[in-house]
Computed example of a mutant assay.
Amino acid sequence: MNRFPDLDGNNIRMKIILLLAVLISVTGHAHYDEAYYHGSSAVADNSGWMAAVDGSKLLSQLSVVGTHNSMSLYGGDIAQTQSMSLIDQLNSGVRALDIRVKYDDGNMAIYHGIFFQYAYLGNNVFSVVSNFLAQNPTETIIMHIQQEEYEDAVGVQFGRKIDVLASQHNLPVWNGHTNPRLKNVRGKVIITYKNFPPIKIDAMPRSYFSDSEQGWKMSHNWELHDKWQVIKRFFKTADNGSYGTKYRHSLAFSIGVFPYFAASGHVSHGKGASRLATDYTTPGWSGTYPDFPRVSCFIGICTIAFEGLNTLAADYIGAGNIKRLGVLWADFPGKRLINNVNALNFGK
């Protein structure tokens, strides 16, 4: 006598197929994308890329990648926004820096929120930038300096300390028009500031740029697609705007989501990690998140996965949708994002 119930063969096959579909939908595949980079060396060799840019271009006509919280290499996934050292960022082609400084008992220490980054403004930022420009005189760098944990009581001391450090480290600061031509600022640093008054150095307030940033917050991972729609609209605004207006955009989010996730869409910070699934599939939700990829397809069912903002931006820019951008702040920028933004400077 048969000890087991008689099971319908077709029913078993269908259950196996559905089980495999579920397993495929939740099992990620490594996603290697050169728009996102989480490594410890330079991602590209672009140390002198601006040499080929028309020197008559105004600052407002340039398109460059900037690193958000450029020195934030420590603090774990919640606080880390970059993996390349400052010199590796510059050699890779980054031309805008976001430097967060805390006035700590007279020391100008680099922080990201409460996280000390084991670096100081003079030795680890001004000196590096000064030496880089001495070796690459065709380049210019936009440096935004912000007093982290702003205190009115130390505002003047903060500004004076910056003056002293800039002089000590021979920082070649641009002192002139707020929308200069590239040929006039080659080999120089254009400084913008927030939360401290300038003393001697000629720095521009942040308001001299038209910010299209979304802030640094998301409520949850599933807000990523909506943020990308807003970013695309701001890209178009800059592309169609006055060539005398200096624009800044941000792909970076560090509140509500991990910075690496917003940049990559990955399940972990590894540059070859798999994309995170959104929990939606096609064809049932075929109209959901149209800019996100459909992956791990099996018998007509595909998982809708998150896509990182670095990848979405690199694809959008590389497809020729815009001709000018301004400064694009990014976390963990990869070679393809940097190169696609830089290429905008050579278009007609």
Rank of each mutant, 00 (worst) to 15 (best):
S85D: 09
F4M: 06
D77M: 09
F116R: 05
T282H: 04
P172T: 04
I87N: 09
Q214R: 10
G284E: 11
D104T: 05
S274M: 04
I99Q: 02
A238S: 13
D152A: 11
D279A: 14
Q89M: 12
Y111G: 00
G244W: 09
A273E: 08
L337C: 06
R206L: 15
A35C: 06
I17T: 14
H225C: 03
Q147H: 12
Y289E: 05
L7K: 06
Q82H: 09
F132K: 05
Y243R: 15
D6F: 13
A313L: 06
A277G: 12
I255G: 10
I110F: 02
N10E: 14
K57I: 04
R275G: 06
S127M: 09
V257Y: 00
K227W: 03
E149S: 13
S130D: 06
V101W: 00
H220M: 13
W49P: 05
G113H: 03
K183L: 08
N240M: 11
N69Y: 12
T288C: 10
M1S: 09
T281G: 05
Y243A: 12
N240W: 11
K246E: 10
L97Q: 04
D45G: 07
L337M: 10
L344R: 00
N340A: 15
G93H: 03
I78D: 14
T281L: 11
D226N: 13
D202M: 08
A262E: 02
N131A: 11
Y120N: 12
S92P: 04
D104N: 11
A96W: 01
A343W: 01
F196P: 00
E34I: 08
E151L: 13
S83R: 13
I201P: 03
S72P: 05
M84W: 06
K348G: 12
K161L: 01
D291E: 11
T192Q: 07
A319H: 10
P137W: 01
L165V: 01
R324G: 11
F115L: 10
S242Y: 04
V125E: 03
